[in-house]
Amino acid sequence: MTLESLRVAPGPVADKPAARRPADEVALIHDRLRAQGYISSEAIATALFVSQRLEKPMLVEGPPGVGKTELAKATAAVTGKALIRLQCYEGLDEAKALYEWKYSKQLLYTQVLKDKLADVLSGAEGLKASLARLHEFDDTFFSEEFLEPRPLLKALRHPGGAVLLIDEIDKSDDEFEAFLLELLSDYQISIPELGTVAAVVKPIVFLTSNNTRDLSDALKRRCLHLHIPFPDQALERAIIRSRVPEAEERLQIQLVTFVQNLRQLDLKKVPAISETIDWARTLVLLHARELDRTLVETTLNVLLKFQDDIQRVNEGLTDLLSKATSATR
């Protein structure tokens, strides 16, 4: 699995006629992700293909638990690059996201400098000469040595490139969003004391958002946008088959049908793929071979996170169960 297949060498794409047709490349990405246990839809594979080729960050939106973060992880695994993750939250600032100075070391340095000052200035006469001497002296106070890189800087300086995952960008503040713009459009970052740091190898950037608020147009403009919806029946089955292979075929079909029908109900929190996987694992632990009423009733809390929802589903359980079991008949 070479890197070249997923990202071509830098330079305009148009100059170099692609060896394969785009559709084949998308299929290839799909297969590679599958090998990592990530079953992608066609839209996801296309998105990955396009964003890699255009070297643009990808903004991934969708309900919680549909595999937004997993996509970044799987991409890191496929490309063999390091995954660098930055979790966003309210109050996140550049000192935590980009860089910080190693203050204690800097303090020590000033102490040492003080002691050395006499040596440096020995022989200089008058203020002018002393200042000239000081100017000759290297200033290392603000230098790479005292720089503590945080995720964003790490991603830019990572030899061989990295996969940068900026998770839940919608949780961060406005200022942080604005601060990201330079990184997203030019893959570089300005540090006032040092100057501009450009990427060694352009990282593959994913931003995820749960849509708790609208992101700014400026941010959206710099990214390609992928919306991952809840999977359809076939895709969800493929995911369960790959993630929980120890579940029996019959059980897989039934539980996926059950969850698919569950999503049609008006619930506070609709179960996502991650919940389906958890539920499948739970059922396997209980040595279930097919769904039955008591089993579902006792394990429903894995799937649903609100008591209201559980009650609501319990009321319509007979119907949901009969739909699920009839799928295997």
Binding site: A23, E42, A47, V50, D214, K220, L224, H225, H227
Partner: peptide, 15 residues
Amino acid sequence: ALLANGLSQALAKSS
């Protein structure tokens, strides 16, 4: 399908 998926990423950026 490829065309639609590709263009949708570049042009439509909210649900």
